[in-house]
Computed example of a mutant assay.
Amino acid sequence: MLVDSHCHLDFPDFAGDLPGVIARAEAAGVAGMLTISTRVAKAETYRTIAHAHRQVWHTVGTHPHGAAEEPDVPAETIAALATDPRCVGIGEAGLDYHYADAAPAEVQEQVLCAHIEAARLSGLPLVIHARDADAHMERVLADEMSRKPFRAVLHCFSSGRRLAEVGVELGLFVSFSGIVTFRRSHELREIARAVPHDRILVETDAPFLAPEPHRGRTNEPAYTADTARSLAATLGLEPEAFARLTTENFFRLFSKARLASGPSSEGA
């Protein structure tokens, strides 16, 4: 059994065939999927998907690309939305300076810190997005963790070794996507080897970043199996052992998912 710890099942890429996407994932051994929020305003969309499919859980939060659209959502509001029985995490939130038109750094940090507080209030883990912002992210995480601890994962890790080391030191998990299968991702595979086995997760970030041998196609949760096989080889583990490891890690971090893993119910 594998769990896709990060995908976006609400995206238009899947609108016409979501049952098929989920069925293909199950056929590939991916028994659980966490669909990730990009806007708090869409909370009902994620809730609907998760309650309609027993294999799916969801989060609530604002992606850094939307920080300027939702700059002032209180932590209390996010935490309240997270009480839904199939909501198992906060985010994704973070810092992304890759694009020139990104929200100002101070706005992204403000939104990230609100989500950190929501993670504390709810007791749920935060899904962190970090891109081209290593030094700033390290500073925010260290400052906030020293103030009051919270649980979190650095998702779709593609940053430098230093941020991975800091994250592990602070107790965070590190999740790897299809990027780790790319031919030129030698450094990323070295970073993966250095992450303690009890902190590693696997994801697709679907519909983006399809792993080899599907590169160039629309990514989907079924392809978690391909990334998992590549990561298992990188770590020197048998695929079955790696699947057990990452699934156990997922349920340790997203512990509420165990409580919500039975048949979904809109009335729950």
Score class of each variant (00 low, 15 high):
1 M>I: 06
5 S>A: 11
53 H>N: 13
177 S>K: 10
129 H>Y: 14
238 E>S: 07
75 A>N: 01
32 G>M: 03
244 R>N: 05
254 F>K: 03
250 F>Y: 14
88 V>W: 00
59 T>H: 00
114 A>H: 09
160 G>D: 15
55 Q>G: 02
233 A>H: 06
166 V>K: 13
63 H>V: 05
166 V>T: 15
39 R>F: 01
234 T>P: 02
264 S>V: 05
258 R>K: 12
196 P>V: 06
151 R>M: 02
146 S>P: 05
139 R>C: 10
237 L>G: 02
197 H>R: 10
223 Y>L: 13
103 A>G: 12
65 H>S: 09
34 L>K: 03
105 A>N: 07
240 E>H: 10
205 D>I: 13
177 S>D: 12
28 A>G: 04
93 A>T: 04
14 F>T: 08
189 R>Y: 10
84 D>K: 01
263 P>E: 06
146 S>G: 12
183 R>F: 13
24 R>L: 05
58 H>R: 01
26 E>P: 03
14 F>N: 06
239 P>T: 05
159 S>G: 15
253 L>N: 06
73 V>Q: 01
184 R>M: 11
192 A>S: 07
7 C>V: 07
40 V>L: 00
99 Y>A: 14
95 L>G: 13
208 F>K: 08
22 I>Q: 04
60 V>T: 01
178 G>L: 12
215 R>L: 13
259 L>N: 06
232 A>M: 03
141 L>C: 10
250 F>R: 04
60 V>A: 00
219 N>Y: 12
15 A>S: 13
66 G>T: 03
35 T>D: 01
26 E>V: 12
190 E>V: 06
160 G>H: 15
142 A>C: 14
128 I>D: 02
7 C>L: 06
34 L>S: 05
224 T>I: 05
97 Y>F: 15
